[in-house]
Amino acid sequence: MALKTIHAPIPGTFYRAANPGDPPFKAEGDAVAVGDTVGLIEVMKTFTPVIAEEAGTLRAFHVGNEDAVMAGQPLYDIEA
């Protein structure tokens, strides 16, 4: 199995859940299917979902909830 790092497609604020108090979309160790939402990136009150493009197991997040991210910055690792 190969470990792949997924990068932020756009700059903004990364959210691991849809709303404060909600469970995260995915946690470390969770199975991820193609099309699953892993997080959201917010820019000026517009939320863009971070969608998994391949299946595997989410191994680690490189950013925390509500962290500012830049385009191209590592977000998470997936083992496929």
Rank of each mutant, 00 (worst) to 15 (best):
A2T: 10
K4P: 03
K4R: 15
T5Q: 05
I6F: 04
H7L: 14
A8T: 03
P9S: 13
P9A: 11
I10N: 07
I10L: 15
P11M: 12
P11C: 11
G12H: 06
F14I: 06
Y15I: 04
A18K: 12
A18W: 08
P20M: 10
P20Q: 09
D22I: 11
F25I: 03
E28A: 09
G29P: 03
D30R: 01
A31G: 10
A33G: 12
V34T: 12
V34F: 03
G35S: 03
G35A: 03
T37H: 07
T37E: 09
I41M: 09
E42Q: 11
V43Y: 08
M44N: 09
K45M: 06
K45T: 05
K45N: 09
F47E: 04
T48G: 07
T48E: 13
T48F: 13
I51T: 12
I51Y: 03
E53G: 14
E54L: 11
A55H: 06
A55Y: 05
G56M: 06
T57V: 15
T57I: 14
L58S: 01
R59Y: 05
A60E: 15
A60Q: 15
A60I: 05
H62K: 14
V63C: 05
V63Y: 02
V63D: 02
N65T: 08
N65V: 07
E66R: 15
D67N: 10
A68S: 11
V69N: 01
V69L: 04
V69E: 00
A71K: 15
Q73E: 14
P74R: 07
Y76L: 02
Y76S: 00
E79C: 10
